[in-house]
């Protein structure tokens, strides 16, 4: 990166460390922090949308839809989430390829399941085998995001379903007395009031989501765990910057990164909670009113 880093073998001490920490591979490591943050930024709203959909389905008047919603919300309770993280990407990948296979190659006569292989016609491959490396990586990341959104959507659906039930019944009855339709009451009365009840659960979920991001490594994405292992491993003198096994320090850095992330979020969430409680008929809202008076 710097001109003085052209020949690392002549460097020593701090300047060596500075050059080492700005080498090409380390830049990739810092970019992978961006990968983690991107995952959080995309997954959080996606999971919220999935959760909202799941909670609405679980409240539906239409029985089959309600069963699907209930099954979705209870799916994460008994089964470890990592199983879903391993299962969902492969299963969805095969589903997508199967649909494309049916659409693109109607006259393919060989079976798709051949012993221990899943074979679709070349045109149906996802991504196409001719596409570039970054397409493959983006596709892998997209699948990971989808897996996270589905699993955390199920958690969020639990929280939102509970929050919708926690809104006082009298509020809905008043809405009905004013002649609002079911839909109007849902949109104007239930949804605006439910957030304050959902917030403790959702903030908890956000913490869980932060702490689940290292699982990207299990999904084969080159995230910070991947780079920490890669960069920290002992390097012989064949490398530009030889050093012994430093993985311990890299993982200590990751530990610090996650501790900072969680404690920062805790502070922000506490503020949001205070903001949302303003003027609400809850204990926290009442305390704020008394403190101000």
């Amino acid at each position: 990166m710097f001109a003085s880093c052209a020949d690392p073998s002549t460097l020593e001490g701090l300047s060596w460390l500075l050059c080492y920490l700005t080498s090409g591979k380390h830049i990739l490591f810092y970019i992978s922090i961006g990968t983690v943050l991107t995952l959080l930024v995309i997954t959080a709203p996606a999971a919220l949308a999935f959760g909202f959909g799941g909670a609405m389905a679980a409240r539906s008047q239409f029985a089959p839809l309600r069963w699907i919603g209930k099954a979705y919300t209870s799916m994460v309770r008994g089964v470890p989430d990592i199983i879903f993280f391993l299962f969902v990407p492969i299963a969805l990948d095969q589903l997508f390829e199967f649909i494309r296979h049916k659409a693109k190659c109607p006259d393919w006569d060989q079976p798709i399941w051949q012993g221990s292989d899943f074979v679709v016609c070349p045109a149906a491959k996802l991504p196409l085998s001719t596409s570039e490396q970054w397409v493959h990586e983006t596709y892998g990341f997209f699948m990971a995001v989808l897996a996270f959104a589905i699993v955390f959507g199920a958690f969020a659906a639990n929280v939102i379903y509970g929050a919708m039930n926690a809104v006082p019944r009298a509020q809905m009855e008043t809405a009905e007395a004013y002649g609002m339709s079911h839909r109007q009451a849902f949109r104007r009365i239930l949804v605006p009031q439910m957030w304050v009840y959902a917030l403790p659960g959702l903030s908890n979920l956000w913490m869980i989501l932060i702490k689940a991001t290292p699982l990207l490594f299990v999904l084969g994405v080159r995230d910070i765990v991947y780079w920490a292992r890669e960069l920290g491993g002992s390097k012989t003198s064949a490398y530009e910057y030889p050093h012994p096994d430093w993985r311990l320090y890299y993982f200590l850095a990751l530990l610090a990164f996650y501790l900072i992330m969680t404690s920062l979020s805790e502070r922000v969430l506490r503020r949001i909670s205070a903001r949302l409680s303003k003027g609400q008929a809850t204990m926290a809202g009442e305390q704020q009113r008394k403190a101000a008076a």
């Binding site: 932060i210 991001t213 290292p214 490594f217 765990v225 096994d245 993985r247 200590l252 530990l255 996650y258």
Partner: peptide
Amino acid sequence: YVFRGSPLFIQFFLAYETFVL
């Protein structure tokens, strides 16, 4: 704070690298 604020996954890695050293 340390054990609840960081992912178990990282704790496993960190512990393993420590024990190996």
